[in-house]
Design a protein around this nucleic acid. Structure first.
Lengths: 211, 211
DNA sequence: CCTGGTACCTACTCGCGAGTAAGACTACTG
DNA sequence: CAGTAGTCTTACTCGCGAGTAGGTACCAGG
């Protein structure tokens, strides 16, 4: 708890990471507009001019946050899924990785999705870019697994719906933190793979064996 | 296009509706924080003190907007679905009513969902309340249609997932306005009723006969 | 034609937050 | 022990937006 005095001298790279962490924290709690550069600098443990010297304007800082967190998340998902497995297993791994990331990085998800999507301009574009990558991933998975003659466009739109459902469920999850990640992921898996039509008949999907 | 001069004298009730319409418009375009009372008053065609005299502070005004739009939407859905039909048909009607409303009232949906959910405090509570009503509706539908021994809790959570998926798809739709409402609704219907497992086999859901 | 009440206005105050000017402290390099 | 490059600060300016004081136009009923 420092309140006064000079901050310890640190190399630029380290300071920049501290500042980014503070920024993600504050943006996620307050939103872009309500967050003030004063508060970010205080949380980061430095003074405002440092902020401007290192990360530029408020908008630049926010965009940088989005890019960093988006990259972190896509990497988490990519390392969680192995391309040679069955389609449903791949989807299952992807969902678990996704919800795992969101669960352990609520702030990241907040700033990424909730904040970025409500501020217009370049921020939403940044987010849309990430979503596009996710949709392509799922679409490829679907195309690969489809036996029926489905068009590329149809796969794309279904993938978009699934990604949307995932985003939404994560959003919902933020307000119901008591549920474990695995349960939420399994719920979505069942919903999108089996459908209500099967579920009300008692047919559920489960992962093949253990692990 | 008035730019100067006095506004026509109007009874209070009429003015209040004009102001609410303007507020929904501005809040949806700019978000709560970025929206200014000056701009709302200008769009409404009156001066700022009128705003304060009639609708109170900025926060009160925003909360009033949310309540009004939430009520409008729930009514639109309720009138669209007939309780004596088959479960899947009920769901289908509900989805069409929902996406129909969102399509014809983008601004309402923006202020309702995107804005209300990002501002904390009483706004999110207002929204959560509406979502709760929607979830109960769907949960009842599911419980009624289930033959398997599903718990109430399971129905609730599945309903939450479905409502979440709907919210999300509507959200996505805002950024892809070229799609017609019926197509988006059908997509979600297929996804949640059939599931990918069926869809990749070529099994799709369709409404029973025409209309 | 006066008298009140309601709709409506111009023209402020005041705090908050983005962004900056100008300099002070530290540490390494010769 | 200079000199210099990079870190860090205090202490501002300045505009914008929430909320208000103190009126002016307009329409009743007497």
């Amino acid at each position: 708890m420092r309140t006064e005095g000079r901050a310890k001298r640190l190399p630029r790279a380290v300071r920049e990471r501290q500042i980014m962490d503070a920024a993600v924290d504050v943006f996620s709690r307050l939103g872009f507009h309500a967050a003030s550069m004063d508060e970010i600098s205080e949380v980061a443990g430095i003074s405002k001019p440092m902020l401007y010297a290192y990360l530029g304007s408020k908008e630049e800082l926010f965009a940088t946050c989005i890019r960093r967190e988006a990259t972190r998340m896509m990497e988490a998902i990519a390392t969680g899924v192995e391309p040679e497995q069955e389609p449903d297993v791949q989807l299952w791994s992807g969902l678990r990785a996704f919800f795992g990331f969101v669960g352990e990085n609520r702030a990241s998800w907040q700033v990424l999705h909730r904040q970025a999507s409500t501020q217009g301009g370049p921020f939403a574009a940044e987010l849309a870019d990430m979503r596009g990558r996710a949709v392509s991933l799922v679409a490829a998975l679907l195309t690969q697994s489809t036996k029926a003659p489905a068009t590329k466009l149809e796969a794309e739109s279904l993938a978009a719906a699934l990604v949307g459902a995932g985003e939404s469920l994560a959003e919902w999850w933020l307000d119901h933190p008591e549920e474990p990640a695995g349960v939420v992921a399994a719920r979505l898996m069942n919903l999108v793979w089996m459908g209500f039509g099967d579920l009300v008949e008692g047919n559920v999907w489960h992962p093949p064996s253990r692990r």
